[in-house]
């Protein structure tokens, strides 16, 4: 896909491999994962804990703790530059400038003893030659952009004086201060209440479209994905197992794991449904990355698994147009649905 419109591609990740060396052995947190993000596009990475979605993000930022982790293969091309080949100084000039990240818990990712305004200034002055007065003005403008009321006063305040939703807005202001090409949001609303989540998601999407930023949204919440993303990749045990446009994924999920996830979430009852449907369970649990079964990692939990699934890992095939799935039986699933 990235080859088709290269000019539009902000980020191109190819065959990324990140491993961790632990006492219980080596495990492949991210195993041969490729994806790309275009300008103004939102790519969602979905999966459960330990599937490798956050390590993928940290790998792009080159923030994987080493040791125990290391990126051992692949390329991460941001606006034409392979980030994995840069030295630390060059990488620092990119981090917070061309790529920014928003984390789940805004309280732990803000410095509690620095005023909000100063924290934004820090990001701005590190990458741009501006006076501190000019930077402060930019900080206040950013706070206004993320719709914090009374930005002049709020810039003077410390993180503990702000509510959870406000703090996440301040994080967004900081992340977007240098107008990055790519924004990575790792579970940005998981710690927030649902009404605040709705506000923050609306804000992220609005700003991202206005500024033309590419957005990687990491989440476990399929509702957030459906409402926010254009394309989705689903990860399981370190591998990308499905990729599609959001419409195609929700209309005909092709991987049994994706199908299981969708069936296992309770839906808000619709007015006409008077009977409760039993939730579909995915049996078993997410496998440990140090003890992955041979073949498809999902096979032990999969109702459709056949002998081949337990022996050979399925390739990621384009089963339908613009819809890839790594499953030996994806073709049958596509025909049946």
């Amino acid at each position: 896909m990235s080859e088709a419109i290269p000019a539009e591609t902000v980020l191109d990740v190819k065959n990324l491999q990140t491993v961790f060396f632990t006492n219980s052995g080596l495990f492949r947190a991210v195993d041969d994962v490729s994806f790309s993000v275009r300008r103004g596009e939102t790519l969602a990475i979905v999966g459960e804990s330990g599937c490798g979605k956050s390590v993928s993000a940290l790998s792009i930022m080159r923030l994987v703790p080493d040791p125990p982790g290391r990126i051992v293969g692949g390329s991460v091309t941001l606006e034409g530059t392979d980030l994995l080949k840069l030295d630390d100084a060059a990488m620092r000039s990119i981090r917070g400038n061309r790529i920014s990240m928003i984390f789940q818990e805004p309280m732990t990712s803000l410095n509690p003893v620095m005023r909000i305004g100063d924290q934004i200034i820090e990001a701005v002055r590190l990458h741009q030659k501006v006076s501190s007065k000019e930077a402060w003005k930019q900080a206040v403008d950013m706070l206004r952009l993320v719709r914090i009321p009374e930005p002049e006063r709020r810039a003077q305040e410390y993180p503990h004086q702000l509510s959870g939703g406000m703090r996440q807005r301040a994080m967004i202001a900081m992340a977007l201060a240098c107008r990055p090409a790519l924004l990575i949001a790792d579970e940005p609303t998981t710690a927030l209440d649902v009404t605040i989540q709705a506000q923050i998601l609306a804000l992220i999407v609005d700003l991202q479209q206005r500024l033309g930023t590419g957005l990687i949204l990491i989440t476990h919440d399929l509702g957030v994905v459906a409402q926010t993303a254009q394309r989705v990749i689903v990860m399981y045990a370190g591998k990308k197992i499905e990729e599609a446009t959001v419409e195609s994924l929700f209309e005909t999920p092709l991987h049994p794991y994706t199908r299981g996830l969708m069936a296992s979430i309770p839906a808000v009852p619709s007015p006409d449904a008077k009977e409760d449907v039993r939730l579909v369970e995915i049996p078993g649990m997410v496998p440990s990355l140090t003890r992955l079964p041979p073949g498809c990692a999902f096979a032990p939990r999969c109702k459709l698994a056949v002998d081949r699934c337990r022996q050979e890992y399925p390739p990621l095939d384009e089963v339908k147009s613009n819809h890839w799935a790594a499953c030996w039986r994806a073709g049958e699933i596509a025909e049946a649905s």
């Binding site: 959870g164 406000m166 989540q197 709705a198 506000q199 509702g223 959001v246 419409e247 929700f250």
Partner: peptide
């Protein structure tokens, strides 16, 4: 509150948040 819940269906149109602030 109900309007804020993201619906796992891309065809369902996202409503503008009904309440502001905290």
């Amino acid at each position: 509150l109900l309007a804020s819940v993201p619906i796992a269906d891309p065809k369902a149109k996202r409503a503008a948040p009904l309440i502001d602030g905290d």
